[in-house]
Nucleic acid binder design. Structure first.
Lengths: 350, 350
DNA sequence: CTGTTAGCGCATTCAT
DNA sequence: ATGAATGCGCTAACAG
């Protein structure tokens, strides 16, 4: 353990008082050019590094922000986090991260952990435990930014317009003649799922239709869940003719189910997914996708937080809504004339 | 800003001295049951939360560890990080993360940032800047764990056996009759790339062969890089008959290049990739892959670090090597009899 | 402009 | 077993 060099030693080496050294280093208050030069030189010579812990102790600001998402390994979050980290770094902030795994209890534990560490701000992604009671208490400690999540009270945050995204995608399928469109999305208790269901329903409603409730599968997002859900859907006598795969790992489960049941897109069933992944682009057929700019989400979150950090007085309640785009590819087509089973036979016989 | 309750107030409420309160809370030293009870109750009543910053100040330990990888958004790292975070959390540690983007300068900046924050330990993933000079200096501050990376000096860490992985994969293709096997892997200056090239060469050597150096493309790993590299490789008169895609985002680039040039796997060219991704599993044909247990990597890293945190005296230099597995799927076959161009014509004519 | 002083909240030493 | 005092490294307030 090399002895850390403190500001005290720098001051002594520079031949000034400790207070002057501090001011020189931080360019704060009135300091002579001469003092600045001497202190700077001494600091460099000694290899002085300010101790952030001591600074935090004094200034009551740690320069650390905490970020909580349900799963760090989710590629969508991973990209958002990268953007957040990048933007925050330019402002000198470090990023503490953790996964809640959609567990409200765990989320609380993690928030407490972060609070004890005295993070300057908090970014909270969707978690089953919507609007926990301790949230107001939290806001007293520093800015809390919602990431695609709804809070009661002051819910500043960045949100994706899943409502219009789902509306547009559903409408698109409806236009192709589909009326039995399956909607697979993560937990309806989370904002993304809730909004998507609303958009989906409204698209139907605008046609004077009402979707079969059985077609809405909005619980977990695990891939094998999507697989078994899709399989059971496909096995039904009134199987869907289209799949809206609105969750990160849902597409692969549905594709497996299609393969497993001998269905082909877009002839037998149409497929729409989210996120412009390798799989969407390279699968045959390429998958029509609902996308949004993940980097923009991350940057917006970071900038909103930074702004609140500068002016802790919560100005207006700021909500940023980002739109989705639909990338048309090859996985959707008009609803099949003959039922899938019939077509399969035809194909096999030829 | 709700006034934070400090240990001083807890002590007063419990009717004991501040020192006693501290000992009671931490169960350290000699304290009466009675004092413990009183202090615990007071703490609960007042909603006392210890201030981690002040604790760090005093104990010189922050309970925070830093982790640096080239890119947080890389799905492989994302999964490793999740495992690290999970294991670390059970030990009460928080995780600070950042991306180096393979920039040595940025890595240094980030390490300094983390050092100033007085992280208790550091986990360093591969970065162009191998073995920076400041690393020894670093080790004085706390344990530094390598993640698939080589250091000079004390290089404790966990590593993936890319050498044998590449050896096995190359051998497999050699056995299928391929002699022109393209190797695409991220920068050879990084351990993974270096090891893979060694394994690849040795597989050839064991056959008494020597690979065409032009077949080794070991620079950046960006997807469009892989795409253009693969395209140029395929355009050559002596095009490879097999592709080893040993980098996260390389597979998709190569698959696009194949599609673009009208080649089909496994008939025209064989393909091996890494990481058991959705794309590998669902692409047609499913891609034969070289995989390893990412969760195990993360857990091992965390546990190694935790161990060094407990006994700062660097016991033996601990290196953990994790093996790879090869998942055989449909993307590889014997080398085509006729050149691809000829086959294309044949197919078109039929 | 600069030196001195006083804590930030806590763990720990030394008395008692 | 407990109370009082000390200081971790730094910044902010004050006095010069």
């Amino acid at each position: 353990m090399k002895a850390k060099v403190t500001i005290r030693e720098v001051a002594k080496a520079a031949g000034v008082a400790i207070g002057t050294a501090s001011r020189a280093l931080n360019r704060t208050g009135r300091v002579s050019e001469q003092a600045i030069a001497a202190v700077t030189k001494a600091a460099r010579d000694l290899g002085y590094t300010p101790d952030a812990v001591a600074q935090s102790m004094r200034t009551r600001s740690t320069g650390v922000v905490g970020l909580l998402v349900s799963d760090l390994a989710n590629p969508l979050y991973a990209r958002i986090i990268t953007a957040v980290e990048s933007r925050l770094l330019t402002a000198g902030y470090a990023l503490l991260v953790a996964s809640t795994h959609n567990d409200g209890q765990r989320e609380k534990t993690l928030i407490d952990l972060f609070r004890r560490r005295r993070v300057d701000g908090l970014i909270l992604g969707p978690c089953q435990a919507e609007t926990p009671a301790y949230l107001d208490q939290l806001a007293a400690d520093g800015p809390v930014i919602a990431l695609d999540r709804d809070f009661q009270g002051d819910n500043a945050g960045v949100h994706v317009d899943h409502y219009h995204g789902a509306l547009q995608a559903t409408r698109y399928l409806l236009n192709l003649g589909h009326t039995r469109i399956a909607l697979l999305t993560p937990a309806s208790v989370l904002r993304p799922g809730r909004e998507r269901i609303l958009g989906y329903r409204d698209a139907y409603a605008q046609r004077g239709l009402q979707p079969d409730p059985k077609l809405i599968r909005a619980e977990k997002s695990a891939m094998d869940f999507a697989f078994s859900e899709a399989l059971s859907l496909l096995g039904s006598p009134t199987a869907p003719t289209a799949f809206l795969c609105l969750g990160t790992r849902i597409l692969s489960g549905v594709l497996q189910a299609l393969r497993h049941s001998g269905r082909l897109a877009p002839d037998d069933v149409s497929v729409v997914s989210i996120g412009d992944t390798d799989l969407s682009q390279l699968f045959s057929p390429a998958i029509t996708s609902l996308t949004w700019d993940l980097e923009a989400v991350g940057t917006a979150v970071a900038e909103l937080l930074l702004r609140r950090l500068d002016s802790p007085a919560p100005l207006e309640q700021e909500r940023i809504l980002l739109t989705t785009q639909m990338v048309l590819r090859e996985s959707c087509g008009p609803v099949a004339k003959a039922p899938a089973a019939a077509r399969k036979k035809t194909r096999a016989a030829s």
